[in-house]
């Protein structure tokens, strides 16, 4: 089995430090970079992101990363806005995203007078492998967002805030979590470990 190393794509966004620190707690080879050769050779790739989808897509375009990310074949994890970027499009200023997971992002509805953004610890349900192996239904993770992916064919976990929405999505080698595993205590750390186990399993099958 080859060594696990994590490349965190340096999108110039704000939460890179907390994502890096979270992976460093469970893996001894973590790099924040925009070097495409390096990222392509990594066993796992992470696409972090906070802020607005439009600004983030502009940054990816500016760094020449759009077709590059689309061409990646190892497991890729998008976190929060990074997850939303993996979809086809976002209603947040109607922008096109990377189109790697066949779904769309829409604004959360302010139903039942619930405050927005959806901010705080909420529960995960309808959990599916491999990202949620060993995670209990109803576990709490930390969310901060106003836009969300509705539940659908590519939903890997759900949460509920006035309406059910995708807490996680996946298609092929692309995985996305709407919550912040890097800020979700032991549960979040467990989910990140599950992500790092994905390629190891695949390599075992392939070898």
């Amino acid at each position: 089995m080859s060594k696990i190393n994590v490349a965190i794509i340096d999108t110039g966004c704000a939460n890179i430090t907390s994502v890096r620190c979270a992976f460093e707690r469970i893996c001894d080879d973590v790099t924040v970079t925009r070097d495409q050769d390096f990222i392509r050779s990594a066993s796992h790739v992470v696409l972090p992101g906070v802020g607005t989808a439009g600004a983030a897509m502009e940054k990816l375009a500016q760094f020449g990363l759009i077709t590059f990310i689309q061409s990646l074949t190892q497991p890729v994890l998008g976190i929060c806005l990074g997850m939303q970027l993996l979809t086809k499009s976002s209603q947040e200023r109607d922008i096109d995203c990377l189109g790697l997971i066949d779904t769309k992002v829409s604004a959360m509805k302010n139903s039942d007078n619930l405050p927005l953004p959806h901010m705080g610890w909420n529960q995960l349900t309808h959990l599916t492998p491999p990202l949620f192996n060993g995670i209990d239904e109803g576990s709490y993770v930390y969310f901060v967002h106003s836009f969300a992916v509705p539940t659908g064919a590519f939903t890997a976990a759900q949460s509920d805030y006035g309406q059910a929405f995708s807490a996680a999505i996946s298609q092929n080698n692309f995985y996305g979590v709407q919550f912040h595993p890097e800020r979700s205590g032991k549960v979040g750390s467990h989910i990140l470990k599950n992500f790092l186990a994905i390629s190891a399993t695949q390599e075992k099958i392939g070898s």
Binding site: A14, N15, T17, R25, E182, G185, K186, S189
Partner: peptide, 25 residues
């Protein structure tokens, strides 16, 4: 490994950018 917020004397975009870059949520 839980979220945290930093307050105090943040007056500009640059001030905020530095604190967020250090890992504040």
């Amino acid at each position: 490994d839980i979220p945290f917020c930093v307050a105090g004397g943040i007056k500009t975009i640059e001030d905020a950018a530095k604190i967020l870059a250090f890992g504040a949520d």
